[in-house]
């Protein structure tokens, strides 16, 4: 009965072989990736080499915009704000996310699923709306925090004063993104085989020692990735200060962060060429910051 087989019959279908197939699978994504990522970047780089003159229209100026941006205190003030923000926000967020993930994973507490999901939910709230809600909460007249302070006989804190503004923005980010990081750590912790836990119990380790000495080191690669993404996100800060600007015009100026600066240069200042150079420079700062972080981490690992 063997040997009759399934003889190849004339096909009107095109059979794609495995050499071409991956390119075809990639094609739709790659097409849009090129059109909406590569091409805009090249275009931005191109326009960053020109300058709009008062008379005579646009002319080629080479890297003038970059040298100008390099010496522009408005850009560097924004970068300093970003770094202050990142150093304030990221460590607190990562630490709380880790602690909560370890607590939930250890199974010591009640209502684990409830906490896990409710901590994550703010991630579903759009950044714009989260900022709106918090700016209401920060509000001096109608905000409940101010109300409580006054009720207790204190002065209502000014959340958008120059001293408090970064903390107020960091708080919004903490509220929004802590749970997201916690979920990722939690999943990584859950993936650790249970026989390790059994082994540590046999070794006489306490639950706390097991969590901090065995589990934590095992998810270090996951932590590094989330920190890199947090750095990238923090250095692109835009939406929160852009909206809070409405209630704090004197504190959040038109170059509070480089992204706000570039936005205002383009749409208010009519200087898209210079804005493109600022954006590229910010991209460079982000790349360097991520790289320095990875380098520092690898150094410590080698030691």
């Amino acid at each position: 009965m063997t040997g009759r087989g399934v003889k190849a019959r004339p096909r009107n279908r095109v059979i794609v072989n495995k050499t071409i197939a991956p390119y075809l699978f990639l094609a739709p994504f790659a097409l849009f990736f090129v059109a909406f990522l590569i091409v805009p970047l090249i275009y931005a780089f191109d326009i960053s080499l020109y300058k709009k003159a008062m008379v005579g229209g646009v002319r080629f100026v080479g890297f003038d915009n970059y040298t100008k941006a390099f010496a522009d205190p408005k850009f560097w003030e924004g970068v300093i704000v970003l770094f202050k923000f990142a150093f304030l926000q990221i460590p607190i967020m990562i630490a709380t996310a880790l602690v909560f993930a370890l607590i939930l994973d250890s199974g010591v507490v009640w209502a684990k699923a409830f906490f896990r999901i409710s901590f994550f939910l703010p991630y579903a709230v759009p950044a714009v709306i989260a900022t709106l809600i918090w700016s209401y909460l920060y509000g001096p007249a109608y905000g409940p925090i101010g109300q409580t302070a006054r009720f207790l006989g204190f002065e209502a804190p000014d959340f958008v004063s120059p001293e408090w503004i970064l903390g107020s923005i960091a708080n919004i980010a903490q509220w929004q993104f802590m749970g997201y990081n916690m979920i990722i750590y939690f999943a990584a912790l859950q993936a650790i085989p249970t026989d390790l836990e059994e082994a540590s119990v046999v070794d006489g380790a306490s639950a706390f020692a097991f969590a901090t000495r065995i589990k934590l080191p095992m998810i270090v690669p996951t932590i590094i990735v989330t920190v890199v993404f947090s750095i990238i996100g923090a250095l692109q800060l835009f939406t929160e200060p852009f909206l809070i600007q409405n209630m704090a015009r004197s504190v959040i100026n038109s170059n509070f962060t480089p992204n706000i600066y570039a936005y205002n240069l383009t749409f208010v200042g009519q200087q898209p060429n210079y804005a493109a150079a600022i954006s590229f420079l910010l991209g460079g700062v982000i790349a360097v910051a991520s790289y320095v972080f990875m380098l520092a981490v690898n150094r410590r690992k080698d030691r």
Binding site: M1, T2, G3, G5, V6
Partner: peptide, 11 residues
């Protein structure tokens, strides 16, 4: 798995 191989009546 073996059945899937046999039904095709291969050479």
């Amino acid at each position: 798995a073996i059945g899937r191989a046999i039904v095709r009546e291969p050479v």
